[in-house]
């Protein structure tokens, strides 16, 4: 464990907390893409499919359960309690292409042809693009509440911090996972435009509006 990885995981926890806080405090899921949330549920279930059968550490075990449970809880809240506040007319990204593309990528790029390795690789590729419906929705609206934007920002920071973590592990631990690294860089690049607008607007105390 190094500080980049710990910082990334904590940013991930913060993003989940911000999202659930926003939805429950406002009693509204407006501006949040349920498609992105469904994709994250799929990502965590496939990534952590061995959570009960392969022990890494108490830390990873607890975090995995939190990520699975919170993503399902978010989808459940959006689909049931706050269904009327959703924006299905602007949440129109075709996620079947993201899922299909991730299946193809996992079939080509995987560490071993076993079920667990294939679903692990699928989860990595799917995670790299899972934010797209949310960013697409943001673009269609043109502006968003700062709380929504903070959520996306914290989630982006999580994956961005994993990049120096991989550099660190490559140098000091002789550890290198090309699939996680390439997909992680793609994911961070997807956020780069968002990060730029976030810096230009939100950091300077303005409303998040796309130029």
């Amino acid at each position: 464990m190094n500080l980049f990885r710990l910082g990334g995981d904590l940013a991930h926890l913060v993003s989940i907390f911000i999202l659930l806080q926003k939805i429950t405090a406002n009693k509204s899921a407006a501006g949040i893409s349920i498609k992105t949330q469904i994709l994250y549920s799929i990502v965590y279930v496939t990534r952590y499919i061995d959570v009960f059968t392969k022990w890494i550490s108490l830390y990873t075990f607890v975090m995995k359960l939190i990520f699975i449970a919170s993503s399902f809880y978010t989808v459940w809240l959006m689909h049931n309690t706050y269904k009327s506040t959703q924006n299905p007319q602007i949440d129109t990204f075709k996620i079947r292409y993201l899922i299909g593309g991730s299946i193809i990528m996992a079939a080509i790029f995987n560490h071993k042809l076993t079920f667990n390795e294939l679903v692990w690789s699928f989860s990595i590729w799917l995670e790299s693009v899972a934010i797209l419906p949310q960013l697409f929705m943001l673009q269609r609206t043109g502006e968003a509440e700062n709380i929504t934007v903070h959520y996306i920002f914290a989630l982006g920071i999580y994956r961005a911090l994993y990049i120096p973590n991989w550099v660190y592990r490559w140098i000091f631990d002789q550890y290198f996972d090309y699939i996680a690294t390439v997909a992680g860089i793609i994911q961070t690049l997807i956020y780069s435009d968002f990060f730029y607008v976030y810096y230009q607007r939100v950091m300077k105390g303005k409303k998040f509006e796309l130029p």
């Binding site: 995981d9 990873t60 560490h111 692990w120 994993y162 973590n165 550890y175 996680a180």
Partner: peptide
């Protein structure tokens, strides 16, 4: 070295 197969990251 197949240490990456352990998948110890989140």
């Amino acid at each position: 070295d197949n240490s990456y197969l352990i998948h110890d990251e989140l």
